[in-house]
Amino acid sequence: MVLCVKNLSVSIERSRIVHGIDCHLHEGELLMLLGPNGAGKSTLLRAISGDLAYGGSVSLSGRELGEWRPEHLARQRAVMPQRVEVNFPLTVEEVVQLGRSELRAGMNDPVVDRLMDDLDIAHLRHRLVPGLSGGEQQRLQLARVLAQIMDSPGERLLLLDECTSALDPAHQQMVLDLVRRLAKEEGVAVLAVMHDLNLAAQFADRLMLMKAGYRVHSGSAWDVLTPDLLETVYGFSARVVELEEGYPMVVPRRGAPVRAQLAPLNPSCRQAS
């Protein structure tokens, strides 16, 4: 097992944001984390990234997070934060190269070249990062993050926080396709926070639905994306239709009342850890 999270809780400034979450990821598995704003998805991801103090246990390849040497951990686990702001005049290529460890750093790194091609930023290679569009910056950060674990031996974990939020539909497909290929062909385990339910249904192996810091439900797209659960968790009314490809698509009902703030969290939905 690549990632094993047991009874994970996170508190920020004495208020508890994440309550006793369990989850695990096997090699090549793609788990997407869904839930309304403020559900604790990003907080959970940041705790697993080692950015936040947590209660409970997070282990990678059987070793507790804190027992890893930072430089070893960086070769097995890469993190793409929700937002990375670059104010200094670094070029696209320089930022991607930051993902390479010092030993492998150098000009004309084939991994760097391939990733820039795969993510459609090769033509921006010498451009300065502060002048890029939001979508270009997002693809750039993903390239940097992937460069970090691209040719590492052993089990690898990729943590993505809304990696497609600034992308147009074509680039969303391109990016998630690449991520899914990495999972299926190279065995990288992926945990991704998503907002787009239909993209999640299309690309994930498994979905986990969160609300108010609790895990509400997890399972296949068909298990999780039900009208009832969407109503309960998000507070909006939708129908779920089956696409030819075999996965579900969520179609919100126009004009139906949205009760995002009011939607109660039904305690029976919480799966006790």
Partner: peptide
């Protein structure tokens, strides 16, 4: 030099890239 380049991307990224 290299860790400071990582700092330009934000403090959390420094840790993600394996620097103390």
């Amino acid at each position: 030099a290299r860790p400071l380049d990582a700092f330009l991307l934000g403090e959390s990224v420094v840790g993600h890239l394996g620097y103390r």
